Simulated scan of single mutants.
Amino acid sequence: MTSSPTPASTVPDLERYWQAADRLTAATRQRRPCPPVRDLLGDGDIAAAYAVQRLLTRAAVGARRRLVGHKIGLTSVAVQRQLGVDQPDCGVLFADMARAEDTPIDPADLLQPRIEAEVAFVLGADLDRPDLDLEMARSAVDQVLPALEIVDSRIAGWDISIVDTVADNASCGLFVLGAHRQPLGALDLTAMTMAMTADGQVVSEGTGAACLGDPCQALLWLARTAREFGSPLRAGDLVLSGALGPMVAVTPGSTYRATIAGLGTVTASFREDLSCREDLP
């Protein structure tokens, strides 16, 4: 007689969190996507999902991966619709996630990559006050530049809920920063238009207003959220704003180029996935 799975609510919290963390860790290590973790955490338990993310972050830091900042996810309604969620989330960025514009990315470093264009902020001041507002968030920005985030899910088939993606470090994979940096100053990021091409063909378009109404508003949301979690944003942190338009699946061998009016361009190219070549021995 087959026994029924134990309901998540009857398993001690820390045990559930470690089970979910272990599942995601195994997917990364084995290079094989795993089933969703919402069955372990509860379909709407976002607090549990962030607890798993913190466990994974601590383990990564313990393995000497260096934290460099944060990413905001699910800020675009278009991306929320693509993934079936209705609120933003956040994750952390490690130094080894960065890739250079002039170096092709190996698809083998990823599982199910998709790509989106974003605004990147480099903070020049802490954002740790209890009365944070939009003006404070803007004044804390030292530099702003275009970025591409290569999002990736450890969950098979991108079958994710908000709980799955939060636990999975907001589905973060890699990122590429553009070369041109400038002060935020009086720039109006809401009015900036974005177009992303794949091998010269436009595959995604959007505006700054698609990112929670204003990428700086997304930064403010993150600053308040990070402070609530006890890890406020600090000077020197890199922050990715979230998508300005729909994300698209990555095709090995292709080159993606995003142009954000007023900020400049950023390019990410991918090596051909040689493992799929039928003519290889």
Rank of each mutant, 00 (worst) to 15 (best):
E101F: 10
L145K: 00
A48V: 00
G245P: 08
Q217C: 05
D188T: 12
G91N: 12
L24A: 12
T103E: 14
S241N: 09
V77R: 04
E135V: 11
L148I: 11
P252I: 05
T75Y: 01
A108M: 02
D96H: 08
A249P: 05
A49V: 03
R277H: 06
S76K: 03
R32W: 07
G44P: 08
Q30T: 07
V250L: 02
A147Q: 02
L263Y: 05
L177M: 11
A261T: 08
R227H: 11
D89F: 06
I150R: 11
A26F: 10
T265R: 03
Q82C: 01
D89T: 14
T165F: 03
D279E: 14
P107K: 01
M1W: 14
M194Q: 11
A48E: 02
A20N: 08
D199M: 08
S153Q: 15
A258N: 07
V202P: 04
L24E: 09
D89L: 12
D188A: 15
T197Y: 02
Q80T: 01
S269T: 04
D164Q: 03
A186G: 14
A21M: 10
P35W: 01
R277G: 06
T265K: 01
S241W: 05
I160K: 02
S4E: 15
A100F: 13
G91M: 14
P183S: 10
L174Q: 01
W18Y: 13
A98P: 00
A27S: 01
M196S: 09
E135N: 11
D106A: 04
F229P: 01
V141G: 08
L184Q: 04
M192T: 10
A125H: 13
R31C: 03
P107W: 04
T2S: 15
R277N: 12
D131G: 12
R29C: 03
D109V: 06
L187V: 10
I155V: 08
R64W: 12
G230A: 07
G200S: 15
A125G: 14
L148M: 11
L148N: 00
D109K: 06
D188N: 15
A59V: 14
